[in-house]
Design a protein around this nucleic acid. Sequence first.
RNA 1: GCGGAUGUGGUGAAAUUGGUAUACACGCCAGACUUAGGAUCUGGUGUCGCAAGACGUGGAAGUUCGAGUCUUCUCAUCCGCACCA
Length: 817
Amino acid sequence: MLNYSSKELEKQWQQYWAKDRSFEPSEDFTKPKKYILSMFPFPSGRLHMGHVRNYTLSDAFARYYRQQGFNVLHPIGFDSFGMPAENAAIKNGSHPKKWTYDNIDYMKGEFKSLGFSFSKERELATSDELYTKFEQAFIIDMYEKGLLYRKKGFLNWCPSCHTVLANEQVIDGSCWRCDSDVVKKDMNQYYFKITKYGDELLSDLSKLEGGWPKQVLTMQENWIDKSNGLEFKLAFDETSLDKLNSKFDGFSVFTTRPDTIYGVSYAALAPEHEIVSYMIENLLLDKETIEKIKEMKNASSIDRQKEKSGVALNLHVLHPLTNKPVSIWVANFVLMDYGSGAVMAVPAHDERDFDFAKKYDLPVKGVIKPFGGEFSADKPFTDVGELFDSEMFNGLNSKEAQAKIIEYFEDKKIGKKTTNFKLKDWGVSRQRYWGAPIPFVHCHDCGIVMEKKENLPIALPEDIQITGEGNPLDHHPSWKHCKCPKCGIDALRETDTMDTFVESSWYFLRFCASPKNWGKEAFSKEQIRYWMSVDHYIGGIEHAILHLLYARFFTKVFRDLGYLEFDEPFEKLLTQGMVLKDGAKMSKSKGNTVDPDAIIEKYGADTARLFILFAAPPTQELEWNDNAVDGAYKFIKRFYERSVNVCKTDKIPALEHSKLTKEEKFARKKVYEALVRAEDVYREKYTFNTMIAGVMEAMNALNLQSNSDVWSEGYWILTSIMEPVIPHTCWEISSQKFSFKNLAPQRVVDEVFVENVLTLGVSINGKARVEIEVSPDAANDVIIAMAKESALKWLEGKTIIKEIVVPKKLVNLVIKD
RNA sequence: GCGGAUGUGGUGAAAUUGGUAUACACGCCAGACUUAGGAUCUGGUGUCGCAAGACGUGGAAGUUCGAGUCUUCUCAUCCGCACCA
C-alpha cells in the first residue's frame, strides 16, 4: 500500500531539480527551441492565485516541450521598479530597495514550492543596476535617433501619486493605479515617439491574427485609431487680424469629412489653443468670457463630457472655397491633443457640431441629402448621400466627393491629405525615486546632454529621504550635481526617472542573453536570432494595451537600431481569465482571497496546479471552489496509490490487443484517447480541462480491469501526459517504475481504436430511438435492414421516404403517415 | 453610441467541428464497510410523468433527413473604448 504524502514527495523533487539544474536552457543553438514566457510579476510581497494560474500555464507548456525534446527557455524575473515600493517606504519607513529585494526572495521561495520549471540562472530583477545600465544605453540610442525628445505639454498628473501618467495609464479620467482624479498640468517631460510607428503598429496587427486573441487586436486597433482626412488652414479676415495684432494669420483644422465643407457654419478652438491663450494673456476678451474659458479648462475630463458649452471670440475666418466669413468659437468638446486642436463645424452633418449649434443658435446648412430624398434640418444627416449646394461638386456621392475635394485642395495648395492617430507619444518621465534614472544632464551652456555610455549605469543613491512630498532625487543633497559630459562645467542631472513600462518593454530580450555575458552586453544578435520570437506568451488581459503595445514598439525600434531582425516579439499570446471567489475577483479589500501558500501547505503544489487547469479553460474566468480542490487532491492520491498495479519497466509493454478482454481493450482505448486529446490540447486548443478529463476517464477504465501490462502501459502514457500538470507526482511514479524513460514523446497505437462491433444510433425523423450493433464492414443495406427491424414499433403504419446512414455514427429513417 | 465576447443540469464545464446533448468533476441521494470519519468503495442523479413517452442548450424564426453547432432577428450579462473632428 502506497501512501501519498504531498509534502515530502514535492520537497524531494524540488531539491532534485535544483541540484540537477534540470531547467536550464542549453546553449546549443542547433537544437529546435521553444521560448515559453509568462508575464513577470511585480514583487508585491506574495503570489496571488492569478500568478499561480499564469505560471502553472506556462510551466505546463515548458514541461511539455521539454518532454518533446525541445530546448526550452522558460525564464522568470521581477518587474521590480515602481511606486508600491516607494509607497511602502512612506508608510512604514522601509527602504524601497530592501522592501523590493526582500519580497523577491520570498516570492522565489514560492515559485520553488509550486514546482515551476523556471531557469534559475536567468532570474533577474529590473531594478538590478546591470539592467538599468543597458536600459540607459538604449535610451541614449533612442535619443540620438530622435525617438526620445523633451517638450513642454499638458500632462496627466496624478495628485496622489505625485507624478505624471501616460495616456494609456489614465482610465476613465482616473489614475490606473490609485484611482484618483487625474488633473492636467503644464510641464516639461520626455516622450518616446511612438506615433512614428503608429502606422506599422496598426498594420502589423494583421501578422498577429490567429496567434493573438481577437479582442486584444481590436483593442490595440481602437487605441491607435487611425483616420484619414484633409488638413487645411482657415485664414482670418482683416478685422480679426487687426484684433490679434497680426500675431496669427489663421489656424489649421483637420476633417475626415471634406465632402461636407460647404456646410461649414462656424469653427471652434479648444480652450487650450494658443490663439485663445494669447487673447487671454493680452486681455483681448472681456472678463466674463475669460472666466468661462478658464472654467472649461479646469473641468475634469468627465465633467467636460457632460454638456457642450462654449463662447464666441468675435473673430472670423474666411471659408477657403466660398470666401464667406465664418465665426470662431471656443468649445469644450474640442480637444487640444487631437489633430490641431481646432475644428471646422458642420452642424448639418455632425452630431456634436449640431448639438453645439442648437445650444447657441448657430446656422445649420445642409449640403448632403439622402439618395433620392431631401435634407432635413431637424437632425444631422451623417450617412453617405448626394452633395448639393456645393458648387462644382454637386451631385457627387459623398464618398467620391471626399477624394475630389482633397484633390482640389492639394491642386490649389490650400490643404493636404493627412492621417491622424488617436495614439499619442508616450510620456515617460516620472517624478519618483524608485525607477531607472533618465541618463541626461542639464548644462547651462550645452542644454540637454546625454551621459557617456562608459559612465552607465547612473545608479540611484541609497541614502534618501522618502516623505511622499516631491521627488526624493531632486531633494537629495548631492546626487544631481555633476559635470557636463560635454564641456565639463558644473551641471545638473535629470532627476526624473523612467516609467516602469520601459523595463517591461525589453525584458524578454534580456532573457535570451546567456547569464555569463550579462555584464558585457544586454544580449547578442545571435542569441536573439535563436530564441526569439516568444512562442507562447501568457498573461492577463489587463496588459492588452499598455505593456503589449509598448513591447511591440520597442521591438520595432530595436530592429531599426540594428539589434534584431524581426517585427513582432510575441508569436502566440494566451490571455488568461481572472480567478474569482464567490463570483468576484479575488481582492484583499473584498476579503475573498485564497492564499496559495495555505493551499500548498494543506494539499501540495500538484493539487493547486491540477485544480487550476481542470476547473476551467485558461481564457475563461476561474471560480475558486474548495470542494473541487479537495476533489483534485483525491484524484492525485488515487493516481499515486494505484500505481502499485504497475510493473517496473524501462520500456512500454508490448500487448497483443486481440487477446485482451473487453475491459482491457476498453482501458487501452481510453488511455490512447487521452493521449490523442493531449496532443491536440498542447498544439492548439490549450483546453487542459478536457485533457485532464480524458486522463480521469482513462483511470476509471483502467480500474475496471486487472491486467498488469495494461496498467503499466496506461501509466507509462498517463504519467507522461500529466507530468506538465502534476510534475512532482509524475516524477515520483516515473522514477519508481519507468526510470524516467516515459517522459518522452509517445506514439499513438491505432489498433486500440479498431472495433469489431460498432454501435450505431437509430433515429426516426432525427429523433434518437434505439441502438443497434453491426459489424464494421457491414453494407449500408444490411445496416438499414437491421435499423428497420429494431425500430419496428415506430414504423408501423408509416411510409419510409428516406434512409440515411452516417458511417460509424447513426442511421436516420425519415417517415410519414 | 462603437467594438469584442459569453449564454448548455443544482455548480464548474464537455460535445470528435452539422450526426445518439450534458463527457469529466463538484454537489446531492441511496447503499456497503466500519477502529464513526469531512475516510474508502458501489450505485443513482436534466425536467415533467406511475409508465409509455413528451420536453430540453437565453428567446423567436429559418436552412437541413438531422442544429448547442450554420443564417437572420431578439433578449440578457461581462469586458474594452468613448465628444478623436
